[in-house]
Nucleic acid binder design. Structure first.
Length: 647
RNA sequence: GCCUGGGUAGCUUAGCGGUAAAGCGCGUCCUUGGUAAGGACGAGAGCCCGGGUUCAAAUCCCGGCCUAGGCUCCA
């Protein structure tokens, strides 16, 4: 491959920032050999300007080059791509008529789409066996550059591949094939050296997928799988999946009797049982206290309005498909998809002086959005949900102080739950309303406030709403999954549409800026995240049942009820079932009750209690007053874990 | 909306043409047990809904409803 030194040279940039001079026409592999023969031999693939490419790919002048070896993070991705080919080869052996579509690696594994194939979950085991044979055979992968005409001939029986080929041809791309044994596939690569490098793999499930993700196209059969370098890694992956299933809020919601979504009541319309509503009420109170301290006034708006309002707010034209609309007599009505128009209407109902601003409205407002039925999922995607909504009407010079106050509240809430989070500032998109002047001013204000508040944030250029820039928080749960959280959005549009104004010092009318802000976002979504984050083991202040009192024997039941009286400011139950103390303890653990008070003859005689928490810590001879004082503190300070027995 | 699974007791599930099962939970009784399962008995099921096939349907077929996972991370 090495060319004479007299050839013209180009420079590439290595990950450490240094430049390397290589002959024009050099491949990624050549670059690796240039760095060192050992690295050259280990090269599996490369990255050019961040894009994963085959090691044979030609580098260009000024390219940022990374070499991918079997120690790289990208190696698994390359291997999974090969695993996808192995799957396709196995499918072709067992289902010769199947047509190939695409088969890329994903974050968690890989998939391959097929058409004209009739498989179900039971067939996956056979496919896995066939794949195991191919891996066992350790077939070498060979890369081949071919002409368009040649490729067309080879893909004569693969209509989807032909479609891709034609597009590639139009783009003028180099056409490459990868083959392993008797199987070949149109593919850009990269791949590992041989199928034997696939350490451990598993086929996960079968799903439908539209060709190219477009619902106007035909539905194909997608087979999902994953692959890892070792059995241990695969097992770890499967364990994590199991953990996620164990924490599933739908399952825990059922076990703990928090909520239900029933056939009779309809899809995406959750019913909150007493236990679930208890948690939600605590969340509501928490935010209400913060709001009232911050000068918000609570308002209430109905669940539906005439569409005149939605026409004025712009929802009717932009959001119509997601709204529930219906005729009543001769008028058209719509369930509210957002609370802001109602709040704007309240503001609009009177005249304001600059002295009155900022005006801050808050409402736990139920909204209705008609998601596609296939998108609904437990509490995370629903038709009806409640937003801890807040809308502020402010003078431009008040934006900074108000946003600052909102970020304080957000920090307080996220810190209370000990959730890690990321912050992003989303700036002006291409299509937007509002003057350059106000956008620039608003963006710089937001950036300044974030800078002061958060250790770290990213700027998402052009990701703002058309009506204003916004700050989005994404928090991470115990499994490392990220969720949309609090948001602060400036809005220059709604004040225009509702012709909102206040009279300034100059006796002229001025346009206020509207700020939309949610801390939990939706109660439903936040509740779901909390259930999964805590695995149902809610902090004491949120727990539906905070303390359960267990009597050693029935003789101690009267004392148990006396103790219950002592703790009646908390959510306390007495377990009066005829069961051994072991069984009662087990029951309390299963129900995730933070604290058990256990009373028998000893306690009754001494006038004290035994305490056990759900983490299996326990203590005898506890004074009633001492425990009650602690519980008050644990509740009011919103401790995340029961900590009486850790003091 | 579309694809592939699934819908059986309060919960978790087995059964897949021939009298509806199990564990947990619940009730009664025996037991009164000291820190994660004592024992016995018992109650509890339009087998998602509607149609069809059959001597016979929870089971097979058709339609619907609900539910789970998917539906570009571009060869």
């Amino acid at each position: 491959m090495s060319q004479s030194e007299s050839e013209s040279q180009i420079a590439v940039v290595l990950p450490d920032g240094s430049e390397l001079s290589v002959p024009e026409g050099a491949s990624v592999e050549d670059v690796a050999y240039e760095i060192g023969p050992g690295l050259g031999r280990d090269t599996v693939a490369g990255k050019i300007d961040g894009d994963l490419v085959a090691k044979e790919a030609e580098v260009h002048d000024g390219a940022a080059i990374e070499i991918v070896t079997d120690g790289s993070d990208e190696y698994v991705e390359v291997m999974r791509h090969t695993a996808a080919h192995v799957l396709a080869q196995a499918v072709k052996r067992l289902y010769p008529d199947a047509e190939l579509a695409i088969g890329p690696p994903t974050d968690e594994g890989f998939y391959y789409d097929f058409d004209d194939i009739d498989v179900d979950a039971d067939d996956l085991a056979d496919l896995e066996d066939e794949m195991a044979d191919i891996v066992e055979a350790d077939l070498e992968l060979e890369r081949e550059e071919v002409s368009y005409e040649d490729a067309k001939e080879r893909l004569a029986d693969e209509p989807y591949k032909l479609e891709l080929l034609d597009e590639l041809h139009e783009e003028g791309a180099q056409i490459t094939f990868y083959s392993q044994g008797d199987f070949e596939d149109l593919c850009a690569g990269p791949h590992v050296e041989s199928t034997g490098e696939i350490g451990a793999f598993d086929l996960l499930e079968i799903a439908g997928a539209y060709w190219r993700g477009d619902e106007d196209n035909e539905m194909q059969t997608r087979i999902y799988g994953t692959a890892f370098e070792s059995e241990d890694d695969l097992e770890q992956f499967l364990d994590r999946k199991e953990e996620a299933e164990r924490r599933d809020h739908r399952k825990i919601g059922n076990q703990m009797d928090l909520f239900s979504i029933q056939d009779v009541t309809g899809p995406g319309l959750p019913l909150y049982h007493p236990n679930g509503k208890t948690v939600l009420r605590e969340l509501e109170r928490f935010i209400e206290d913060l709001n009232l301290d911050a000068g918000y006034e609570y308002v209430e708006t109905p669940h539906l309005f005439k569409t005149d309002l939605w026409k004025r707010s712009g929802h009717y034209e932009n959001y119509e498909d997601d709204m529930f609309l219906f005729e009543v007599d001769d008028d058209e009505f719509g369930l509210k998809p957002m609370n802001c128009p109602g709040h704007a209407a309240i503001f609009q109902d009177q005249s304001w002086s600059y002295r009155d601003l900022p005006v801050r409205y808050a409402e736990d407002g139920k909204v209705y959005r008609k998601e596609q039925s296939g998108e609904l999922s437990g509490l995370s995607r629903v038709w009806a949900f409640t937003i801890d909504d807040g809308h502020l009407f402010v003078r431009p010079d008040q934006i900074e102080a108000e946003v600052e106050q909102i970020l304080d509240a957000i920090d307080t809430v996220l810190d209370t739950f000990e959730l890690d989070y990321e912050v992003a500032l989303a700036t002006r998109p291409e299509k937007s309303v509002g003057s350059d002047e106000i956008w620039e001013k608003a963006e710089s204000i937001l950036e300044r406030v974030i800078e002061e508040h958060e250790d770290d944030y990213v700027i998402e250029d052009g990701d703002g709403a058309f009506y204003g820039p916004k700050i989005d928080f994404a928090f991470e749960d115990a499994l490392g999954r990220k969720w949309d959280g609090p948001t602060v959005q400036l809005d220059f549009n709604m004040p225009e549409r509702f012709d909102l104004s206040y009279v300034g010092e100059d006796n002229e009318h001025h346009r206020p800026v509207m700020i939309h802000r949610g801390v939990y976002g939706s109660y439903e979504r936040f509740f779901m995240v909390l259930i999964e984050h805590f695995e149902g083991k809610f902090p004491f202040w949120l727990a539906p049942e905070q303390v359960r009192i267990l009597a050693i024997s029935d003789d101690n039941l009267d004392y148990a009820y006396e103790i219950a009286e002592e703790f009646d400011e908390f959510r306390v139950e007495v377990n009066d079932r005829d069961a051994t103390i072991e069984r009662k303890i087990r029951g309390a653990h299963n129900d995730r009750v933070p604290y058990m008070i256990i009373v028998g003859g000893n306690e009754e005689e001494a006038g004290n209690i035994s305490v056990r928490d759900r983490n299996e810590n326990q203590e005898y001879d506890v004074e009633i007053d001492a425990f009650r004082d602690h519980l008050r503190r644990e509740r009011d300070e919103k401790h995340v874990e029961p900590d009486f027995l850790l003091d």
